[in-house]
Nucleic acid binder design. Structure first.
Lengths: 162, 162
DNA sequence: CTTATACTTGACATAAGTGTAAACTTTCCT
DNA sequence: AGGAAAGTTTACACTTATGTCAAGTATAAG
């Protein structure tokens, strides 16, 4: 359960495009701005382009630009393009151990419920956070303060019920 | 951002110990119960033992057992042993691209704020969820329903503020 | 219509994560 | 003692993720 390098660097490239002046920004500028090799930045931007998050213009004076305004691009889309989701449908099918299917496939699986709940929480937060939010100092903190408090306050209360 | 195999399988082994009768449970039983090779289960249980979550008894009639009662072992401890945290201190130092340090190291970094917030939310939920919760049908759903609603309801409200 | 600029593609090298194998140590039972 | 049952350790093969390289294609300027 770790943030992948692609997620980090790809999101940084997107943020840079969001900050940039109108018109395409060249690979050289983007990679220089993030301290990445241009080959690596190209790979990441290629993925983002394939998923429709950025547009590329080839040839002289070409470059990359966001395909939509920053406030219409969610962090969830970006991260899901670069690194998939925390928990996906196929996960259980891919963790069968030695058997043909998971030994818990036919029964209620509380671990699965846990993964689903975690995934939903993360997705919900990321879906509501846009590139525009990441541009603005303090916006992320503000936006995530309430859910964070909600979760934390839940803690002592729910514990007592058991 | 994916759940690792070790996290899944290691947690399953722990859950099996939590379900088992008092006294040590042998590697063979555990691995058979989860459909894992005994070599692999041994590796996972070795890690869990090194972190003090299970105790092992060697020799004939030996096996593994939880080092504490299930209600005192949090899922956070287990997952953190098996797969680390979503976002750790060193993350930023390890993602410098080509430079000696991250180009954003000296400035306010909203991406970092985002990672920290996500990590805190996940940790808070996992800290309050114990092995005992995972034993009980429906407990996970109950326990996570409130925080989930809190996050989801936050959505429309916070959105309008912008 | 040539050239410099810039994105694109696919193959590759390296590192990290996943899972196996075999030799070893400890303990109990007879 | 001796052997069987059971955990321990280390090294290895395999797979996936990370990052690079080089040759290719498209476009605008002169």
């Amino acid at each position: 359960m770790k943030i992948s390098s692609q997620e980090e660097y790809g999101l940084r490239c997107m943020l840079q495009l969001a900050r940039s002046a109108p018109g395409p920004m060249s690979l050289a500028e983007i990679s220089r701005g993030e301290g990445l090799s241009s080959a690596y930045a190209a790979k990441l931007l290629g993925q983002l382009r394939d998923h429709g998050l950025v547009e590329a213009v080839r040839g002289r004076s070409g470059g990359y630009s966001l395909s939509r305004p920053p406030e219409d691009i969610t962090v969830r889309e970006i991260l899901s393009t670069l690194g998939g989701q925390l928990f996906e449908e196929r996960f259980c099918h891919e963790h069968n151990g030695l058997g043909e299917s998971c030994v818990h496939a036919d029964s209620v699986c509380n671990i699965r419920s846990l993964w689903e709940a975690l995934n939903e929480m993360l997705s919900a937060v990321l879906e509501r956070t846009t590139l525009a939010d990441l541009l603005c100092y303090g916006r992320v903190q503000e936006k995530l303060e309430e859910p964070r408090r909600a979760i934390l306050s839940e803690g002592s209360g729910a514990q007592a019920v058991n």
